[in-house]
Nucleic acid binder design. Structure first.
Length: 302
DNA sequence: CATGTCCCAAAGAGTCCACT
DNA sequence: AGTGGACTCTTTGGGACATG
């Protein structure tokens, strides 16, 4: 996550500059600049290039670096170094759809207080709009929308590169993403990458024949409701995956599906599936005729 | 019930210095 | 220019409580 000093340096990089020159310009110790530049590089917001004795730092050719440049051009007076900090970026990542503070805190795993502070700051600059107690990213700030999307996409790809080269992202919002892979990532040391969807079905004594493995990147603690929704997200219009999800919902007795569905902007879809369970009547093309679903369900139970 | 505020502790970021 | 250590300051988390 970019932090104030790093973003201040990014601002100065209208032209490539060396570490010592940046230290002079900003009146900071060269080691401070050095650390900050390293973090910028790690995040795809700077690039280093040796030039004889010096190391030239310049803006890289990444999508989020361009978005950030656009913001600086469009709103030169915006204090980006204070606005786009760690928690702000996480909060913005959650607000592609309107949510209240409590939901946003639950979605990001941040403290309610932290979310509230970030939102007050962002609202003050019109980056976030408040309507009927709910907050959402101001769509008119399109460069900010781009920055948030591109930033998190880059972060996800960085992360995945270390894990599995065949990984494909199926869903993403902010720092959280669902991906599938054929290879077993193995290193369980990655504590923010947790198995999910059909990959955890055996925990609930449900059987699925597949070699594809699904994982979710989050720092939140996942619940069975998350596993169910991830199963749907594999292919939301596909009756098979919806059936798998329903089987898991039934089997686990999940009680908070509707609420969790809201976090994933899947409220309508979940409502429709719950209605299907209640009425035992096919109510959309995303589900199987009830008798076929029952057959599938009994074939899965171990 | 959701939100805003306050406090305090812990974690993390930011800084500079000495050394390489 | 980069690294590691020591230090300070800021941000964050969590509990408690008032407000609406």
């Amino acid at each position: 996550m970019p932090y104030p000093t790093a973003l201040t340096i990014f601002k100065e990089l209208k032209r490539p500059a060396s570490i010592s020159r940046l230290a002079d310009m900003l009146g900071l110790d060269h080691s401070t600049i050095s650390t900050a530049v390293s973090s910028l590089v790690a995040e795809g917001l700077a690039e280093k290039q040796r030039d004889g004795k010096k190391v030239l730092v310049k803006r890289p050719n990444t999508l989020h670096a361009h978005s950030l440049e656009d913001i600086l051009k469009e709103y030169p007076r915006l204090p980006v170094e204070n606005l786009f900090t760690n928690s702000s970026m996480e909060v913005l990542g959650a607000l592609t759809q309107p949510h209240n503070i409590t939901d946003t805190a639950a979605m990001t795993g941040l403290n309610r207080h932290t979310v509230s502070t970030a939102l007050t700051k962002l609202s003050g600059y019109g980056i976030v709009l408040k309507e009927k107690g709910r907050f959402a990213l101001n769509k008119r700030h399109r460069y900010t929308v781009d920055l948030v999307n591109n930033y998190w996409r880059y972060a996800a790809n960085q992360r995945l590169r270390d894990i599995a080269d065949d990984a494909i992202i199926l869903w993403q919002r902010g720092p959280e993403f669902l991906f599938k892979t054929q290879t077993d990532p193995g290193h369980t040391g990655e504590k923010d990458i947790q198995p999910t969807a059909t990959t955890v079905f055996s925990r609930y004594n449900l059987q699925i024949i597949t070699t594809t493995r699904y994982y979710f990147h989050t720092k939140r603690r996942m619940r069975v409701e998350d596993h169910i929704i991830h199963t749907i997200l594999i292919d939301p219009q596909n009756p098979t995956y919806n059936s798998y999800a329903l089987a898991l919902a039934t089997r686990s007795g999940a009680t908070d599906l509707l609420n969790t569905g809201r976090y994933y902007n899947m409220e309508k879809h979940i409502e429709s599936l719950l209605e299907y369970l209640r009425t035992k009547e096919k109510n959309s093309d995303a589900v199987l005729p009830w008798s076929e679903y029952m057959d599938l369900f009994s074939s899965m139970v171990v």
